[in-house]
Design a protein around this nucleic acid. Structure first.
Length: 489
RNA sequence: GGUCAGUUGGCCGAGUGGCUAGGCAGCGGUCUGCAAAACCGUUUACGGCGGUUCGAAUCCGCCACCGACCUCCA
């Protein structure tokens, strides 16, 4: 098997051969959700993308430690160390304790992730659970001279840091450009430099979520949690750090600076960023009113949705685009994906019924190589999907006796289908075919009566039965000397 | 204004300096009592204008449009 995995590294803006720091171990950290409201569908895309990456790394035989955090404290509105705490605001709004907010949305996040059939991460640390680690890291950064305390708050000194290390490398920006863009500091601001960001924020008397620190009561800044937790579980240097593209400029840039300032090493070898989700061409966002929640997408209960789409259809839809491209949601696109997905699932069923011949007229080995080639090229799932439809074509042709397959190839094809469709793409067949024995027996009985009618050329009766059953969601397919049926919806 | 992406056929979406991804939809056909499913065939697209090249949708430049982040505003 070709293990020549290539990953696009945001840091270098190039595709690079993936070489883990300590093979066969791979450490991967993905910025998780801030659990102050229902998980955004864009977040889901990021986590589904990294689920695919995680699954493929596992399939290649790596011993992967996948860390995805839960942000449950310290995330202020506007990401600029000012404004209200997201949890406190929501708590006030819903008349709950901040920790009730955290619990509520953590649970719903896990539920949605499980519905999308994502594997749970190896470790899912929370910011609140790692306050002391964050404090220790801040102390170290102060000791190294890259942070300063001011009236119970601690800020990172970006300008000083940038003299020793490149600061904006993740977005290819120079410090001067960044400085140019910021406005003058207002008089009461405690920051020395315009670009400085908070590592520790002093609490106000009314702040509910606060902890003691060497600088008094307060809470950690948003960026420090990821640096502290990734260091704790993956070490000062680890292989892959991922997240949405919107985190690249600020959050990840500051993460690099913090870790570098603390332990004097670049924390991450490969930075990976997933692209945004759009709806009818524009970015999905709450303010634009074009965002829907995962639940609304499943049920179709949203003005922009003609109807609901199953979680696996959505997962398949996402797999049909590359993680670094924007993906556009529209009813037309989703319905197209739905057709394709069930075609793929049906082929999987057909595959299990195929019989082998003495020789093969199809090339399964080549197909398999193509599948690996696609995934090895920066996890190119759309190309993989296109090859899987080649598999679908082969399956159907063999089923129609238009091609032949020998036992060895058939086993290879079955394995390929299972590995790529279910293990790697993380899909599962969700066709509603659970029916009681009674229902099944009744349908068989009715269809046998219809078969009799057909034999007597009583097509009026046979069509009447078929039409009625079709209306009830039972799809009938006549075969040479009998029938097949399945229940849809 | 700055930085970075992108603009592909009816829709969604890959990709590559020459060998026409794939899915959905459409059309024609095979099969079928008729259907459905499946299969076969079919519609040859790469924002505009220049340039490099034997050859560019693919490389370069300019322009237009769209998006993200920063800024602004909240």
């Amino acid at each position: 098997m070709d293990k020549n995995l290539i990953i696009y590294n945001t840091l270098t803006r190039k595709k690079e051969v993936f070489e883990p720091l300590n093979p066969p171990f791979v450490g991967i950290y993905v910025c998780g959700p801030t659990v102050y409201s229902d998980v955004h569908l864009g977040n889901c895309r990021t986590f589904i993308s990294f689920d695919l990456i995680y699954r493929y790394l596992l399939h290649l035989g790596y011993k992967v430690r996948y860390v995805r955090n839960i942000t449950d404290a310290g995330h202020l509105e506007g990401d600029r160390d000012e404004g209200e705490d997201k949890f406190a605001k929501k708590a006030k709004l819903e008349q709950l304790e901040p920790m009730e907010i955290v619990q509520k949305y953590t649970l719903s996040f896990h539920e949605i992730m499980s519905i999308f059939n994502t594997l749970p991460p190896s470790i899912e640390p929370t910011a609140i659970g790692h306050i002391s680690e964050q404090i220790e890291m801040i102390k170290e950064i102060i000791k190294n001279g890259y942070a300063y305390e001011k009236d119970g708050a601690v800020y990172f000194d970006v300008e000083k840091y940038s003299k020793a290390h490149p600061y904006g490398q993740l977005t290819n920006r120079k410090l001067e450009d960044l400085l140019e863009g910021t406005r003058d500091l207002s008089g009461q601001d405690e920051k020395k430099g315009r670009l400085d960001f908070a590592l520790w924020i002093k609490s106000k008397p009314e702040t509910l979520m606060k902890w003691p620190s060497p600088w008094g009561w307060g809470f950690p800044g948003w960026h420090i949690e990821c640096s502290a937790m990734s260091t704790k579980y993956l070490g000062e240097q680890f292989d892959i750090h991922g997240g949405g593209m919107d985190l690249q400029a600020t959050h990840h840039t500051n993460e690099i600076a913090q870790s570098q300032a603390c332990s004097n090493t670049a924390p991450v070898k490969y930075w990976m960023h997933t692209n945004m989700l759009t709806v009818n061409g524009t970015r999905m966002s709450k303010s634009a009113g074009n965002g829907f929640l995962p639940g609304e997408l499943f049920t179709g209960n949203h003005p922009l949705l003609e109807r609901g789409y199953s979680p696996m259809v959505i997962r398949f839809f996402m797999a049909q685009s590359h993680y670094r491209s924007t993906l556009d949601f529209s009813n037309e696109a989703l319905q197209g994906a739905e057709k394709g997905f069930y075609k793929l699932m049906k082929a999987g069923e057909t595959l299990n019924k195929l019989t082998s011949a003495h020789e093969s007229t199809v090339n399964i080995k080549e197909l398999e190589e193509n599948c690996y080639k696609a995934m090895n090229d920066d996890f190119n799932s759309p190309i993989l999907v296109s090859h899987l439809f080649e598999a679908v074509r082969i399956i159907n042709l063999v089923n129609d006796s238009k091609e032949m397959i020998n036992l060895e190839d058939l086993e290879r094809l079955k394995k390929l289908f299972k590995v790529f469709v279910f293990d790697i793409l993380g899909l599962k067949d969700d066709l509603a075919k659970e029916s009681s024995d009674l229902t099944g027996n009744l349908i068989d009985l009715i269809l046998n009566l219809r078969l009799d009618a057909k034999k007597n050329k009583d097509f009026a009766t046979s069509d009447k039965i078929r039409n009625h059953l079709t209306d009830m969601g039972v799809v009938i397919k006549d075969t040479k000397d009998g029938f097949e049926w399945e229940i849809t919806n």
